[in-house]
Design a protein around this nucleic acid. Structure first.
Length: 886
DNA sequence: CATGAGCATGGAC
DNA sequence: CGTCCATGCTCAT
């Protein structure tokens, strides 16, 4: 940190020539990261913000603030923080800029990195050198590169090619980021903490700032000089949020990844606030609006960075940002993200970078060899990749080489998303990731599991809690967004991305179904962390309950009115799946079992009978849940089905409750079977290479496979028939009564029947069109449960698999569903002549897309049809109660 | 022969 | 039609 100027006894100000005092005072930050050491006089001038006025009055680069008209020296490193660029051109002094936080936040991230592209080649080379230098293993950490780069360019502009380019413009470009990093670097200096450990005073400082809202008082005081920022250093910190994201100090919970829907019970979407305020609140929830601002399409950018394809737009959630930033109160500048292709995730270790992103955010390289780039992951581990390019059709193809270790460390696979952002003030390039679905697929055709993308089409849910986002693929696999929640915007974007993606990708996406919860619904499930009282914070007139610990997601319940007219809610036991009646005002934790039933001691044990009959439950549950209700019923009655049904319910519960622990297993899916979707963790897919026994292909029609399948179906049919006989009768009656009417929501048969038409095609010879789903199961069955005295793993999945509802149990459930649906359909056909809207589609596996999806969704098995997503949000039994208004 | 580096190809947009 | 980029192909090691 010793100043570059420390070697000289003279004031760093070349106009000065005075001797520095014994303890020279620091002025602006130099390109090297050091600080200009000034004599007392100059430092005073500097600190008063009059440096440029005093010494650079005759220099070029003075411009007028578009707002107040004040002159700002834009061509100088000293005052490079004193202004910001205006979208339409021109500049604005910081004082004016601060008046509009939202506005000022924009220039921030695009500016810093795109600067070089605005420069002539010559300057690019200069910048390249800087980057090169920085990126190398030299003493200067790469993370400082951005600011250094910028500064150096500015300096170059000044000292070497001052007039070759539009200096003011160029310098302006540098401004935001420069300002950022400078202030933070100064801060860093002052605090003298290692970057990663700056949690103490720095954190405090940041908080303080946050609490003060628009601090920057100092800046305003010094406004007249337009140089104030430099002198403010730490005090100026408050301004940084304007240009990036202040990462709030994570609450313990958040830090632990429990963020869930973190934070206060805000109706965040309706309370857009300047970022500053957010730091004080747990970030999860309030962010929607913010996330949009922050992660959305890259804002205006003089260089057209916003021309980046939408699929590369960063869509960080606060949680992700938090993760990335770790403990520091750093400002994160999301740069871009990319979904890993099979190639990217493959062994080659080359990550193809989108050209525009590479050119915009990475150091310019002129040689194919490129340069080593240090990138830090969310855990703080630093990786060094070779950033280079290949000449390609008169263009370049940028790649990061050597990413394999990192990819592996992050356990990323094709379809997962890697994110790139920059941490300010450190300037670190940070690589985060977001698991698409935990599963990979390395199959060429399945390379990506687009859950992320495939998700939702409707943006109603601003669920900030990543843990509550699940997706279900065909095989019933539930994918959870590991790192972050998708804001609606991001989901929309993803969608569009999907559309833009290749067929391969699309195929994947179509298979995905997202379990959706609306924002309100999610909010409704929020529960304060136990034993934590909120403190009320008033921000801009809005009161917020703030909890020290992030709230947890409560268990979804069904509200109803009992016979006595009292408002009650039905909650399902985690263990026995029986529904228990509780007072309507009871707050149910995410995990609730009969033993927690303090309201009804008689039913505080799983052994106690359920008050609710299946039929009643059927009426209570949203129609989409009926099948689940039936399954539950079956479960209770038929121990043999328990596993599958448990899986179903667990799946449903998981979808809402955010139990991430059980997911990883499914995420380890392999791609041994091409048709298995990413995320498939069926017995086949997870089978170790050393697995014995032949692996049957999905299309295998060998006796074993057929027999197993047949047996299973028969079994399921029989049981299902028995168990739902009564219910079916009811259904039939209803149907008869309403033959000519469209299905009513509360009607059991419609939901069942529709699906069954499609999915119900149990005929063994079909691999229905939803064949990814059906294929999976047969495959699993075939391959894993050939006779030979082996356990049919498909039917009796290993415990481990049971715990992973998404995988195998999903397949089983599917079969069960099929059987059930088929049965019901038959019943209906026989009784009502196929009055069901789609009951006659049995022979057309795919024809009934909606129906099929409905079923699939219903059973949480996912659908392979995109229209399912559009048509009706796929929902899972319980989830239906919280599903978005489709 | 396996692997990796570099380049070419072709689909998608 | 041009660009981008995922992946294939070829050659060197």
């Amino acid at each position: 940190m010793s100043s570059a100027s420390s070697s000289s006894k003279l004031c760093y100000n070349s106009e000065c020539k005075e001797l520095k005092s014994e303890r020279p005072r620091k002025g602006w930050r130099l390109r090297t990261g050091d600080y200009a050491e000034l004599c007392d006089r100059c430092v005073s001038v500097y600190e008063e913000g009059r440096f440029c006025e005093t010494f650079h009055l005759n220099a070029t680069g003075w411009r007028c603030c578009e707002t107040c008209g004040k002159q700002v020296h834009c061509g100088c490193i000293v005052s490079s923080h004193a202004f910001t660029l205006l979208d339409p051109g021109g500049i604005e002094c910081m004082k004016c800029a601060r008046k509009n936080v939202l506005w000022t936040s924009n220039p921030a991230w695009p500016t810093s990195l795109c600067f070089n592209s605005l420069l002539p080649e010559r300057l690019k080379d200069l910048s390249f050198k800087n980057w090169s230098q920085l990126a190398g293993s030299g003493p200067v950490p790469w993370r400082q590169a951005p600011s250094l780069f910028n500064s150096s360019v500015a300096a170059e502009l000044q000292s070497r090619v001052p007039y070759e380019v539009d200096m003011s413009g160029g310098v302006n470009k540098l401004n935001a980021s420069e300002r950022l990093s400078t202030s933070s670097l100064e801060k860093k200096k002052i605090e003298d903490f290692s970057e990663r450990l700056m949690n103490g005073s720095l954190k405090f400082g940041a908080r303080e700032i946050l609490e003060n809202g628009n601090a920057g008082i100092k800046v305003e005081e010094n406004h007249s000089s337009c140089l104030s920022q430099q002198s403010c250093s730490l005090k100026e910190e408050p301004s940084t949020p304007q240009f990036g994201l202040i990462v709030p100090h994570p609450s313990p919970n958040e830090a632990n990844g429990q963020i869930g829907v973190s934070g206060t019970h805000l109706r965040a979407t309706s309370t857009p606030m300047p970022k500053q305020f957010h730091g004080n609140l747990h970030s999860g929830v309030d962010l929607s609006g913010e996330a949009q601002v922050r992660n959305g399409r890259p804002r205006v950018d003089a260089r057209g960075r916003n021309l980046l394809l939408p699929r590369y737009w960063p869509r960080f959630t606060d949680q992700e940002l938090q993760q990335i930033s770790g403990d520091s109160n750093s400002v994160i500048t999301p740069l871009f993200e990319k979904m890993l292709s099979a190639s990217d995730a493959g062994r080659i270790g080359r990550l193809v970078l989108p050209k525009k992103c590479a050119e915009a955010y990475f150091p310019p390289i002129s040689q194919p060899e490129g340069l080593p780039l240090k990138v830090q992951d969310a855990k703080g581990k630093e990786w060094v990749f070779q950033f280079r390019f290949w000449p390609n059709n008169n263009s370049r193809m940028y790649v990061l080489e050597g990413v394999t270790p990192c990819i592996q460390a992050m356990q990323l696979q094709a379809g997962d998303i890697v994110t790139f952002s920059r941490l300010e003030p450190e300037g670190k390039l940070v690589m985060g990731f977001r698991k698409a679905s935990t599963a990979p697929s390395s199959d060429q055709d399945n390379e990506t599991n687009k859950n992320v993308n495939g998700i939702s089409t409707h943006g109603d849910a601003e669920l900030a809690d990543p843990s509550s986002w699940y997706k279900v693929d065909k095989s019933g696999y539930i994918a959870k967004e590991v790192l972050g929640a998708k804001s609606s915007i991001s989901r929309k974007r993803k969608n569009s991305t999907l559309r833009a993606k290749s067929k391969r990708v699309r195929i994947e996406n179509e298979d995905l179904i997202e379990l959706k919860i609306t924002w309100e619904e999610a909010q409704g499930l929020l529960r304060p962390a136990p034993n934590h009282l909120p403190s009320v914070v008033v921000i801009e007139g809005f009161e917020f309950e703030e909890y020290e610990d992030a709230p947890v997601l409560g268990k979804p319940t069904i509200f109803a009115t009992d016979d006595a007219g009292d408002k009650i809610q039905w909650v399902q036991c985690e263990d026995c799946f029986k529904w228990r009646k509780l007072p309507a005002d009871a707050l149910i934790p995410s995990k609730w079992t009969c033993s927690d039933n303090s309201w009804d001691p008689e039913r505080s044990m799983c052994s106690a009978a359920q008050e609710l009959t299946a039929e009643q439950l059927g009426h209570l549950l949203p129609h989409r849940n009926l099948a689940a209700a039936k399954k539950m019923k079956a479960t209770r009655q038929d121990p043999d089905n328990v596993e599958a049904l448990e899986g179903l319910d667990a799946l449903a519960n998981l979808a809402i409750l955010g139990e991430t622990e059980s997911l990883p297993a499914s995420s380890q899916a392999t791609t041994k079977h091409p048709r298995h979707r990413p995320g498939c963790s069926c017995i086949v897919c997870i089978q170790p290479p050393s697995g014995k026994g032949p692996k049957h292909k999905q299309t295998c029609t060998c006796n074993v496979c057929l027999t197993v399948k047949r047996r299973f179906r028969t079994l399921m049919l029989r049981r299902e028939k028995k168990q739902s006989e009564k219910e079916a009768e009811t259904t039939r009656k209803k149907q008869q009564q309403q033959q000519q009417q469209p299905p009513l929501p509360e009607k059991l048969q419609d939901d069942d029947s529709v699906p069954c038409s499609n999915t119900g095609n149990n005929s063994p010879k079909h691999i229905r069109e939803v064949n990814d789903v059906s294929d999976d199961e047969p495959n699993r069955m075939k391959s894993s449960s050939p006779f030979k005295g082996q356990i049919d793993l498909n039917i009796k999945p290993e415990r481990e698999e049971e715990l992973s509802p998404g995988s195998d149990s999903g397949g089983m459930m599917k079969l069960i569903q099929d059987a059930t649906d088929r049965y019901l359909r038959q019943q209906r056909l026989s009784s009502s002549g196929g009055s069901g809207n789609s009951s006659g589609n049995q022979s057309q596996p795919n024809a009934d897309g909606a129906g099929g999806e409905k079923l699939s969704n219903f059973v949480s098995l996912g659908s392979n049809r995109s229209d399912a997503i559009e048509d009706r949000p796929a929902t899972i039994s319980i989830k239906a109660s919280t599903s978005t208004p489709g």
